[in-house]
Design a protein around this nucleic acid. Sequence first.
DNA 1: GTGAAAGCGCTAACAC
DNA 2: GTGTTAGCGCTTTCAC
Lengths: 331, 331
Amino acid sequence: MKVTISDVARLAGVSTATVSHTINNTRYVSGETREKVCQAIRQLGYTPDASARSFRTGKKKTIGFIVPDISNKFFGTIIESAENELSAQGYHLIIANTKESMEREETSLRLLTAGLVDGLLVASTMDSFSRLEALIPAGFPVVLVDRTFEDQTCPSVSVSNFQPIYRSVCRLAARGKRRVGIVGGLPRLSTTKERIAAYRAAVADCGLPQEEGLILCGDSMENSAPPCLDQLLERGCDAILVCQGLMASVTIAYLRGKGIQPRRDLDLVSFVDYDTRAYEFYYDQVDRIVQPVEKLGKTAGEQILLRVERPDAPVAERVLTSVYRPCGEEE
Amino acid sequence: MKVTISDVARLAGVSTATVSHTINNTRYVSGETREKVCQAIRQLGYTPDASARSFRTGKKKTIGFIVPDISNKFFGTIIESAENELSAQGYHLIIANTKESMEREETSLRLLTAGLVDGLLVASTMDSFSRLEALIPAGFPVVLVDRTFEDQTCPSVSVSNFQPIYRSVCRLAARGKRRVGIVGGLPRLSTTKERIAAYRAAVADCGLPQEEGLILCGDSMENSAPPCLDQLLERGCDAILVCQGLMASVTIAYLRGKGIQPRRDLDLVSFVDYDTRAYEFYYDQVDRIVQPVEKLGKTAGEQILLRVERPDAPVAERVLTSVYRPCGEEE
DNA sequence: GTGAAAGCGCTAACAC
DNA sequence: GTGTTAGCGCTTTCAC
């Protein structure tokens, strides 16, 4: 049978209150008593039951993370560093994978907010904040990760998109490129929208042709890049921006399959999920936009814990900066 | 304030028992009563509290997964398909990342088995089964994933290693390669040991030189491949097997950086985490060993649910088969 | 066909 | 410095 706190109390000859307090260091216990209790605990092999405890206290010591695609290294890395942060504070991480489906996200939101977790990290695939908000109980701690909304009312941690994209287009123009195409992720996502906006601004400012046909979107999953690339090539692009790490890796391999070599045949700007540098193919032949992925996860972890512990803390929108690293330039 | 089952009962004018039974379909409730209850639930916006429920029933509807490296796509994919399987049955997934540290695995085991989850999936980094077993309460449902132990007493789901490695060495020998090197993962892991054993057998059977210096191990993380490769090249290898997906990706990029091209300069056999085919670099120039990654995750999910629901089911060791796909051969 | 009520194991007033 | 005890919200016997 299961060993309970009363078994320990009985064996140690004290009350359950004392046992509880010794375990949790929540009021003074004399050295002698403490010893008896620890002794009894060891002897019985007692472990406090986590679900009884969280039922009683209302604290689950668990954070949920709703992710669009766990098998994508970008999110894998974010999860990893968030988990680091959380486990250091004694919290656990529950994962829900949506595969970029709004329905799946709805289900997960409903499930996780029903007393399963203390707070929620969400890299949302929703097309509007209201749809998300509707599923979150009032006052429930939530932090948006990577993807934001213009009208959001909860804190977020994301990455700056404007500057690196804008700069990269300028540099392409300076190199004499004229037909610059762009491949975005899912059109409804803030990341995609911001990146395309930055591209539009730069194209206009640099005096490049503003053709809607050079702006294409995939679905943020890996297999969506090739059809976009085919179209852009057909439309005579001499440079292409790929705005998502996974799609960018596929791009390089796909172009190679067609005998197209970066730099020689086509200038490429690609988002990289993280900075492997030397071990990456053509790392010296494509302009790269490096996102602070680890930092994103770590900050997300910090922020959600902050909100869980102090729900009335001011709502912050943290924006981390990505780095633009043109090929051939070190550091 | 929080809405409880008694609030619903009061508003509907029935007992809490009836409310509970209506929600859970656990005994007959007349259409009329059911209607009143549902009405009240809707009106109050009631959601049963998950932690109260799991406290009461002892069922958490949650499975833990102890993983060596979430940011590795191999495990990301396994997690994804396991989560699919679990969420379809109304279960959640808690992740713990060990980063191949035995201490971290110990902590996670202790934490997760203390009433947090109904069962555990473990891709263990332990050097012995006994060390793992010592931390698992008797009768606690556990399924080992990917990595097994000779003396294990719990069920496992893993991948066959012998045949593809053996065949690949034979084929290298047939192509006239003589100095075949191998790069394994962490030496203590079953996967590494099995792969090296298969390599040894094949080398002996094919009459190739049996040199211990051609057998090198990394740490199963991505940056460990290059030093091994340098050594093998120095020792004059004309073919190399890389026994781990992540290390294999790095290998290809690393060799390119050194101007070494697969097939032309060096034959390469590499584990691939999953079968992207066309979108992969040099997919047509390296022999590949494709592991059934999705299947591994799915089966792991199925197996742990089986054990959670019927703890006395026979202990099965499921071994899935990897496919050996020599370059240039379709299908 | 439905209700009353006893807990699940723990924490935290409150009492001494 | 320690003990008593009332619940947390739910499920589930047992009774009618």
